[in-house]
Amino acid sequence: MTRIDAKFAELKAAGKKAFVAYVMAGDPDYDTSLEIVKGLPGAGVDIIELGIPFTDPMADGPTIQAAGQRALEAGQTLQKTLDMAAEFRKGDDSTPIVMMGYYNPIYNRGVDRFLADAKAVGVDGLIVVDLPPEEDDELCIPARDAGLNFIRLATPTTDDKRLPKVLQNTSGFVYYVSITGITGAGEAQAADVAPEVARIKARTDLPVVVGFGINTPDKARAIAGIADGAVVGSAIVARIGQGEPVDEVLDFVRGLAEGAHSA
């Protein structure tokens, strides 16, 4: 059982939905980013998605892309992102950390070495956008063997025929992408998303959380209401990008978390 499994069991027992927050590691710089990450559980975040900066984030919109560029310009590397997770773990042994990004930085480091390091610093799961089930032997299976959850994205284009394949080696939770599009674009509509979540839940016992197109406490409440949780990324990252002080960023996160938790 990973920290992710434990967290969902705890939330279920309390009758609560999960609030998942995404931030880019090292944005705008290592120290500020670490301070934000350390503040997330106190602001009500149940699971932290820690973005791995990459020069070519093909599934992300301008907001996340700019965050990655800021982080890289400030000297962020995959090693520093692992260091950040380790620093966070010193003060928090229960909040799950999911590292999220693209395959090349991981492939470049070496899959086995990366998995050993990630496990050692207390990372619980991985979301790697450009690794569909067809490439499961690259990282998904080795991650599972190393005791890390590999969380898969399901999308509006994932039809019933394909869904079992997407769910097959997924663990931790399923991340449903509410729109066809990139991060930070479009608006998730609870009415459209509800039947899709039901469709996925009919085929898996894993929790289903919904992300993309959620940017306000009301939206977080509406989406969390029809799923097991809601993810917010770009709306938080945009505030970091505007140079908002850490406590204001965390206040905004607190509002979103309260929205999701009130569902």
Binding site: A59, Y103, E134, E135, T155, T157, T158
Partner: peptide, 20 residues
């Protein structure tokens, strides 16, 4: 059948694009 030439090639895309 996996679109590979030796270790090269493949289908490293997001789930949204995979069905396409």
């Amino acid at each position: 059948e996996r679109g590979r030439f030796g270790i090269f090639g493949g289908r490293f895309v997001s789930e949204t694009l995979m069905p396409l």
